[in-house]
Simulated scan of single mutants.
Amino acid sequence: MEARAILRYARITPTKARRVMNLIRGKKAGEALLTLKYMPHKGARIIEKVLRSALANAEQKNPRLDIDNLKIVKACVDQGPMMKRIEHRAMGRANIIKKKTSHITIYVGIEEN
């Protein structure tokens, strides 16, 4: 049995979110939450919320489920749409600022022994 949580249009670049996601992929859910809690990255706060949502979804599907046995089965960060903004420069020139977004997906499931 698997449960998932998806956060779309998160205001963080995919590379910064993947840096955090690679550290928790394949871990037990409790261990991953503990790891994320003490990370100094902005992506850790965002991914922690998505992981808690996935755990709540799993508990909603099956109330008798023991959350301690859940494991992160699949976790991915995909690029979302870019917001393009203009930054004014000297002599009438302009630069384009690309504000990147991410789609974060986490699947949790029962650990197979």
Rank of each mutant, 00 (worst) to 15 (best):
E111C: 08
R64C: 00
E87G: 01
M39R: 00
R19A: 15
M82W: 03
I12E: 06
R4W: 13
R19N: 13
A44P: 01
L55F: 09
I24R: 10
Y107I: 08
T13S: 15
K42F: 07
A90D: 03
N95S: 05
T13G: 15
I106F: 08
R18G: 08
A94V: 02
T35L: 15
V20A: 11
R25I: 07
T35V: 15
M82A: 11
L7M: 12
G109R: 01
A94D: 00
I47N: 02
H103C: 12
E111R: 01
V20M: 07
E87L: 10
I86R: 11
I46R: 04
C76R: 14
N113D: 06
H88R: 11
A5K: 09
N113T: 00
A3G: 05
N113P: 00
T15M: 15
L23F: 08
I46L: 15
A29K: 02
P14M: 12
K71P: 03
K49N: 07
P63I: 08
V73D: 01
L70H: 03
G80V: 09
P63G: 01
A75S: 14
D78W: 05
I72N: 05
R45M: 14
L55W: 09
L70A: 07
S102K: 06
A5Y: 10
L33H: 02
K71Q: 13
K61F: 13
M1L: 08
G80F: 08
R85C: 03
N57E: 09
N57G: 07
N62Y: 07
K100M: 14
N69Q: 10
L36V: 03
T101V: 04
A54N: 09
G109Q: 01
T15K: 15
I96F: 03
L55A: 12
K99Q: 05
M21D: 05
Q60D: 06
G30M: 13
V20K: 04
Q60P: 00
K61C: 05
E31H: 05
H41L: 11
E112P: 01
A3E: 05
Y38S: 07
L33W: 01
T35I: 15
